[in-house]
């Protein structure tokens, strides 16, 4: 079938304004939107820039806005858009570097801010640090995060408050707050407890809706809020 695309184009060094360019490619219903993008680039227009690598939703490179919704181009199939023109745009909120390629450095810095590594004060045992299956299960969903930034791009609060740490950073904070092996739980919770930390989230659920790995992001943020209320504020 023929698929019509309308793609955001912008080279900030050359172009005054972004523009949209139209392309038509033939594609099979079971193919990915990323396959169409590649076909456009390889056969029609090599000037188009976007990131990609694994092409099956693990590396997190190709987050973009597809007909208004943040998603991975490698996880969306042609048949889902059979009767429509597909508009591809960079992730909202992020600074555009070229076409669909955005600046992710500030996004990664936001995650670093909450120290996304295990902090232990005691020496490790000779073998593994024990952890119950129940404790491991607490982080089972958040360890699926692939840092694709779809949640942060989709978050309406980010649009209003660019200082908000954003959903992805909170998912990573959750991962270590609730890792039973971590020995800085209280400190981590205190670090989250500020105006642009965990509190700006007002349950739009957009992050949860778009997450390509089906992480219940909003629920995690609410759990963090509750943990701060019950653990930090009480003490």
């Amino acid at each position: 079938m023929d698929m019509k695309f309308r793609i955001f184009r912008f080279d900030p060094e050359v172009d005054g304004e972004p523009r949209y360019q139209e392309y038509t490619v033939s594609a099979e219903p079971g193919e990915r939107i990323l396959d169409c993008l590649n076909r456009i680039k390889w056969e029609q227009d090599g000037t188009l820039s976007y990131r990609m690598s694994c092409a099956h939703g693990v590396c997190g490179s190709d987050g973009m806005r597809i007909n208004g919704a943040c998603a991975l181009a490698c996880q969306k199939l042609v048949k889902e858009y059979a009767d429509t023109k597909v508009t591809l745009e960079p992730l909202p909120f992020f600074r555009v570097l070229k076409d669909l390629t955005v600046d992710v450095n500030a996004f990664l810095d936001g995650i670093m801010y909450f120290r996304p590594w295990l902090i232990t004060l005691s020496d490790p045992p000779e073998k593994e640090r024990p952890q119950s299956q129940e404790d491991a299960k607490r982080v089972e969903e958040v360890i699926r995060c692939i840092l694709c930034a779809c949640c942060t791009g989709a978050c309406p609060v980010m649009q209003e408050n660019p200082y908000y740490v954003g959903p992805a950073a909170l998912v990573w904070a959750f991962r270590h707050v609730f890792d039973s092996r971590d020995e800085q739980k209280i400190e981590r919770l205190k670090q989250l407890d500020f105006a642009d930390g965990v509190w700006p989230c007002v349950n739009h659920f957009e992050c949860t809706r778009v997450c390509p790995k089906k992480i219940p992001v909003t629920k995690c943020i609410n759990t963090l809020k509750r943990e701060i209320e019950t653990t930090v504020k009480r003490s």
């Binding site: 593994e128 024990p130 119950s132």
Partner: peptide, 19 residues
């Protein structure tokens, strides 16, 4: 593998809490 666990890799666990 123990080194990775000590760094924080979230391995699945046995009922006894081992990797």
């Amino acid at each position: 593998v123990y080194e990775l666990e000590h760094m924080g890799v979230p391995f699945n666990r046995t009922p006894e809490g081992k990797i």
